[in-house]
Amino acid sequence: MTAEISLFVNPTAGRGRGARAAQPAARALRDAGYSVRTVLGGDADDALRRAREAVAAGTGALIAVGGDGLVSLALQAVAGTDTPLGVVAAGTGNDFGRALGLPLRDPAEAGRIAADALKNDGIRELDLGRVGDRWFGTVLASGFDSRVNDRGNRMRRPNGRLKYDLAMVAELAAFRPVPYRMTLDDGIEREIEATLIAVGNGPSYGGGMRICADAAMDDGLFDVTVVGDCGRATLLKVFPKVYRGTHLSHPKVTVHRTARIILAAPGLTGYADGEPLGPLPLTAECVAGAVRVLGRCPVPGRAGAALPRQ
């Protein structure tokens, strides 16, 4: 293992938390005996190019300092390689870092965890989702939630999370269930009316909403959460439960487990790790052991889980 580590930094993540988090994380890595090189980019394409160059040059690890958007870029650079990925969570959502059991507001501790994992064989292999040549670590969203993203991305103001709260209110007012066609590993095409369908490699999106609460990141399968045809009143009742994952027991919610899924629906954009993938139809595959990560532990497995595979 080379002693040089690449710190992949988004200085604007979390309204500047990314830039502030880089220094204590780098200090913790240097204190552990590693040489630290910072990787920045002028824009997303440039940042990804530089991250891929660092991986190709044999960096000992690529450590993403930022939010889920930067982690998504980092995954494109390290997936399918031997280079481990570390995360210093410094964004708004931080769902990938949360899934790894990492501290969300302690960059020095996150740096120490990464260094300890490198020194003490604490590297774990986790699954990733793949759509075409794009990799994702947490959740592929489609339906009501992706429409909220679409609307929020079109809004110039206000800034931050308030924009998406207002977008959610507007989408609720215009809400209609979506006619989906969904094909799983069994090859059967299911035609269903649904509020949303979320394809989870990891359990949460949107900063801790546990939409696929029982998803394990090391079992080679997606958890597919289908929120069925329900009215606004039911949706308003169910949606707050997503933060605890207790929505899964609602009669309008079903969960399927599959290694591959084809989703088709008119007028919907798919989002993965909060980033737009493009319009449906989309085909997603769960690739077992696609990334090596530095963390305390992956999302736990399903010991004792009560949900049957459907």
Results as ranks from 00 to 15, higher is better:
Met1Trp: 14
Ser6Ala: 14
Leu7Gly: 02
Gly14Phe: 00
Ala19Arg: 11
Ala25Val: 01
Ala32Gly: 03
Arg37His: 15
Arg37Val: 15
Leu40Lys: 06
Asp45Cys: 11
Arg49Asp: 13
Arg50Pro: 05
Glu53Lys: 03
Ala56Cys: 06
Thr59Pro: 10
Gly60Glu: 07
Ala64His: 03
Gly80Asp: 06
Leu85Ile: 01
Val87Cys: 04
Gly91Ser: 03
Asn94Leu: 04
Asp95Glu: 12
Arg105Ala: 15
Glu109Thr: 14
Arg112Lys: 09
Lys119Tyr: 12
Lys119Leu: 13
Asp121His: 09
Leu128Pro: 00
Leu128His: 06
Arg130Phe: 03
Arg130Asp: 03
Asn153Met: 07
Met155Asn: 04
Gly160Asp: 14
Tyr164Phe: 08
Val169Met: 11
Arg181Lys: 09
Leu184Glu: 10
Leu184Met: 10
Asp185Met: 13
Ile192Asn: 06
Leu196Thr: 09
Asn201Val: 02
Pro203Glu: 00
Tyr205Ile: 07
Tyr205Thr: 07
Ala213Gln: 05
Ala215Gln: 08
Leu221Gly: 08
Phe222Arg: 09
Thr225Gly: 03
Gly231Phe: 01
Phe239Lys: 02
Pro240Glu: 06
Arg244Trp: 11
Arg244Cys: 07
Ser249Ile: 09
His256Ile: 02
Ala259Glu: 14
Leu268Val: 14
Pro281Phe: 13
Pro298His: 08
Ala305His: 10
